[in-house]
Design a protein around this nucleic acid. Structure first.
Lengths: 228, 228
DNA sequence: GATTTCATTCTTGCATACTAGAATTGCGAA
DNA sequence: TTCGCAATTCTAGTATGCAAGAATGAAATC
């Protein structure tokens, strides 16, 4: 569900526009509430309104734009309900994954977890924080694989994406990373020891960090949120 | 995410086409693998290709169509991976909901559950099986409300929808309904007695019925499934 | 000065025409 | 009969123009 390539089999100019705008929206270069015009975008990308229109439609379907006929199209504001939903789904899915992972973790799985944790700790030392996102995904994907529920990673990825746009407004990665890596280490240890309960506990602590972050962001950026 | 009204603020002809086609796809009147043509649909709905195109895009984004540029647009086949994913998410979310519901169920909640169960049992006697779908949704929605996680119902609805298209191929409602209502009664009883564990157990039995159904459908309708 | 009204402008919705490329079909040759 | 090639017909992608409604700003009125 993430990018255009999942749905179509060949790239068109609509795909380019879609991917570009999506990245800008996710990075908050286009901010919640910003108005977008089909004509402006057409001029910017050097195409007619039509492909822009198609791209807008796709973005609206992914809950990133709101199209208000004959009025305007704007970048969707954050919705606390949507965020709570993502938070809830992630918690539910990760809990199941961690229990299954703890149950099914074999030597190969343990080795892969060790490797993943080692990479993350190395990254902390070399201070190349930007590539943490990729390592984070690999870690959770590895857990899904050990749990023999690979499709669970799709869900985690989808829900994570929804919250990521919000987290751009939070603290810098430099500040958050040490805690996150420590969380991961605890989760990995529990899974390796087949202690599902401890793994779930560590996982909930991990997710809990999001809550503080989200609460602070909401307090400081009310204008980016839907009125409720 | 279910219908067009969630995204747009005013109905357009695109909305009509989208809703109509969506219903037909869900009811398998348009079957997996069927080819759709923008021109044909335009003629059928008495509009130009453009609104049809927009509707196709939306349906593709909801994983109901596959658009292959310059080739064709066809109704998406079932994907076992997608189905397993929905099954997993539903299990994870419902488990959390049932535990929270058992924890938080008060007298008002208990009364609402009784009412819902009574309606379902009455429906069994009057044999008006077609309206069970609505009652089923209400039951799960009530549970989400008792659990104070109303947004969880959105998820359940979304995932259920994905599997519903498949279940059209299964046994008649007449055959399945008695068991389903009995499952619901057990779940409601457990929740009312604040027995989270029993509620989850009954919930898993309830979901487990899907697995047999899905396996049989896959065996008998391989042509409706993606090759893997 | 505040408010109301109206014209202008900007928005998206829809129709039409054209293009490029894939699939299909029919014909001709082996 | 079968195979291959070419013409035709289908597909969706894109450009353009017009229509209808909403927003905006200026002018007129109180």
């Amino acid at each position: 569900m993430a990018d255009a390539a999942d749905i179509r089999e060949e790239r068109t100019s609509v795909d380019d526009i879609f991917d570009t705008l999506r990245a800008e929206i996710m990075a908050l270069e286009l901010r919640p509430g910003d108005k977008l015009s089909e004509s402006d975008m057409a001029a910017r990308f050097g195409v007619s309104r039509q492909p822009v229109r198609d791209a807008f439609n796709r973005l609206a379907n992914q809950d990133l734009l709101v199209i208000r006929p004959k009025r305007a199209t704007e970048v969707k504001r954050f919705s606390m309900r949507e965020i709570e939903k993502s938070r809830f789904v992630r918690a539910a899915v990760e809990e199941k994954v961690l229990r299954l992972a703890a149950e099914n973790c074999d030597l190969v799985g343990a080795a892969r977890l060790d490797m993943s944790i080692a990479e993350q700790e190395q990254l902390l030392e070399t201070a190349s924080f930007d590539s943490f996102g990729a390592l984070d995904l690999i870690f959770h994907k590895t857990l899904s694989q050990i749990a023999k529920t690979e499709f669970a990673f799709d869900v985690i990825l989808t829900e994570k994406t929804k919250i990521d746009r919000l987290c751009v407004l939070g603290l810098s990665k430099e500040q958050r990373l040490p805690d996150l890596v420590e969380d991961h280490r605890r989760i990995a240890d529990a899974v390796k020891q087949h202690d599902g309960e401890a793994a779930v506990q560590a996982g909930m602590v991990h997710l809990g960090r999001l809550d503080e972050t989200i609460a602070r962001i909401e307090a400081q950026n009310a204008n980016y949120f839907e009125i409720r």
